[in-house]
Amino acid sequence: MATSTAPSITSVSWGSVTVEGFPEPFKDAKLYPGGARGWDWNETGTSHTPGIQPADVRELLDHGAEAVVLAQGFHERLQVKDETLAFLDEEGIDVHVLDTERAVQRYNELRTKQPTGALIHSTC
């Protein structure tokens, strides 16, 4: 179980995710108990369709996340693969799939209550 809280998202706008403790905003962000980093879709070959893959969320769980928030973009163009939702369900992870603005709000609420991770997509 993670002992540290995930950092808060202080603001989000088109193409920019500002995270507490990080001087530069991210375009897309991975957040997890104890830290955050840029989310580079090229690492796993992610694209809008078919969407977020199990490999994209595994790192969040490796950092101790027990809840995961997946942001689909401001216009919900980023899909989530069925395999990803099945993987999170098998791991007993509480998952929330929302548009970016609602995802940021939900993540900031959850991060103070339980070990939480998020994938935040800041454009479409």
Rank of each mutant, 00 (worst) to 15 (best):
W41N: 09
P23F: 04
V69R: 05
V97A: 06
P54H: 07
Q79H: 11
L88H: 10
G51W: 08
V69E: 07
E90P: 04
N42S: 13
L31R: 02
D62S: 10
K113Q: 05
T84W: 11
E91H: 04
D94C: 06
S11D: 07
E76A: 13
T49M: 09
G73N: 06
D89I: 07
R102Q: 15
Y107Q: 06
I52H: 10
F87R: 15
L110P: 02
D94I: 00
P54G: 07
Q53P: 08
Q72I: 07
V17C: 05
G45W: 00
R77I: 02
S16V: 09
S13Q: 15
Q79D: 08
A65C: 07
C124D: 12
Q105R: 12
A2M: 06
V68K: 07
V17I: 11
V97G: 01
K81H: 09
S11K: 08
V17E: 01
G117M: 04
E83H: 09
V57C: 08
S122N: 11
K30N: 06
S122Y: 13
T49N: 12
D99W: 07
G15D: 11
A67Y: 00
T18S: 10
T46Y: 00
H75T: 15
G21C: 03
G45F: 01
G15L: 13
V19Y: 08
K81V: 00
S11Q: 09
E76V: 15
T112G: 03
A103E: 04
D82P: 13
Q72P: 07
P33S: 05
Q79S: 09
D28H: 00
A67T: 10
T84D: 04
P54E: 01
R58N: 13
D99T: 15
T3H: 08
E101K: 15
P23C: 10
A103G: 10
F22E: 08
V95A: 14
E20D: 11
P33R: 14
E90A: 04
R58G: 12
K27P: 02
